[in-house]
Amino acid sequence: MMGKRVSVTLGTEHFTEANETVRDALLRADTVVVREAFAQRYLGCAMPTGKTLEIHGVPGNDLACYLDGGRIEVFGNAQDQVGNTMDGGCIVVHGRCGDAAGYGMRGGQIFVRDGCGWRVGIHMKQFEDKRPAIVIGGDAGSFLGEYLAGGVIVLLGKPGRHLATGMHGGVIYLKHRIADDEVSEGLVQEPVDEADRALIRSLLERYNGFFAADLGAPVDATGEGFFRLRPATARPYASMYAN
């Protein structure tokens, strides 16, 4: 039935049975409110456009893996690999997330109110009109944007060590400039231009729409004062391959 909302309570249910419960509810409704999530893995896996999960508690690893256009909002923290290889849709986390969020992400958007663990955005990529984006409101662990091939990462807090190691595409927008000797070989750190500010503004306005009430005030969404981290050339590792 279109527009219908149902609620399910997971408690300590094993992740296999928990996912069966959620999938069955999604067959009967467009929005499923999940209560008492206690680290069950794979919730929302491959969920299509038109379906929504509102999760209260802490979902387990691989939340929304292969997400295919659906929307997931977590009212709490999330564990590792949020949005693993997701292809489209939106994930909103009213807290922090663990390691490797957006691993191999191909489309869609992830918004995290607070900080994140290591290797967020690793192997993120884009193709034609699919340009994935991750916005992190707090500090990030080490290796943010590792091997980044495409897409956009916006970081409002401070990055950890080894930022963007192996990055060869895409862009990372930093609210806090890093020291020149911390910029990985083959990358350039520079002030943003008006096109960058417009993109940052659109993402941060959406971030504020999700989190301003949590934070007590919206963050500055003008895009002013950011720095752009990008590959110095279109093929930074061309010398490693035969012509």
Rank of each mutant, 00 (worst) to 15 (best):
36 E>R: 15
222 T>I: 13
196 D>N: 00
180 D>W: 09
92 V>G: 08
114 D>N: 08
69 G>I: 10
11 G>S: 08
190 E>I: 12
210 F>K: 03
204 L>A: 01
109 Q>T: 14
199 L>T: 14
68 D>C: 08
192 V>N: 00
26 L>R: 03
226 F>P: 02
104 G>S: 03
156 L>F: 04
128 E>N: 14
46 A>H: 07
135 V>E: 04
231 P>N: 06
131 R>S: 14
18 A>S: 07
50 G>K: 13
224 E>Y: 04
130 K>L: 15
229 L>N: 08
242 A>H: 05
56 H>S: 11
20 E>S: 02
210 F>D: 05
186 G>A: 06
227 F>G: 01
35 R>I: 11
15 F>Y: 04
206 R>L: 13
43 L>G: 14
188 V>I: 14
237 Y>V: 09
123 H>W: 10
42 Y>G: 09
3 G>Y: 13
127 F>A: 15
23 R>N: 10
10 L>K: 11
98 G>A: 11
147 Y>N: 13
57 G>P: 05
170 G>I: 15
79 Q>W: 11
32 V>I: 14
148 L>E: 03
123 H>P: 03
161 R>V: 12
124 M>Q: 01
120 V>A: 02
122 I>C: 14
17 E>C: 05
147 Y>E: 13
75 F>L: 01
99 D>P: 01
167 M>P: 01
142 S>H: 01
184 S>K: 05
123 H>E: 09
178 I>W: 02
30 D>I: 11
111 F>C: 09
219 V>S: 03
227 F>I: 15
81 Q>R: 08
242 A>D: 13
17 E>S: 11
167 M>F: 07
220 D>I: 10
82 V>S: 08
231 P>K: 07
125 K>A: 14
153 I>S: 09
204 L>V: 03
211 F>Y: 05
182 E>A: 10
192 V>S: 00
51 K>N: 02
240 M>A: 09
236 P>Q: 02
17 E>V: 15
143 F>T: 04
54 E>Q: 12
236 P>A: 06
1 M>H: 12
92 V>P: 13
220 D>N: 11
146 E>I: 03
47 M>I: 07
147 Y>R: 07
141 G>R: 01
213 A>R: 02
174 L>W: 06
150 G>R: 03
38 F>A: 15
226 F>A: 00
181 D>L: 07
203 L>H: 03
141 G>I: 01
124 M>T: 00
134 I>M: 04
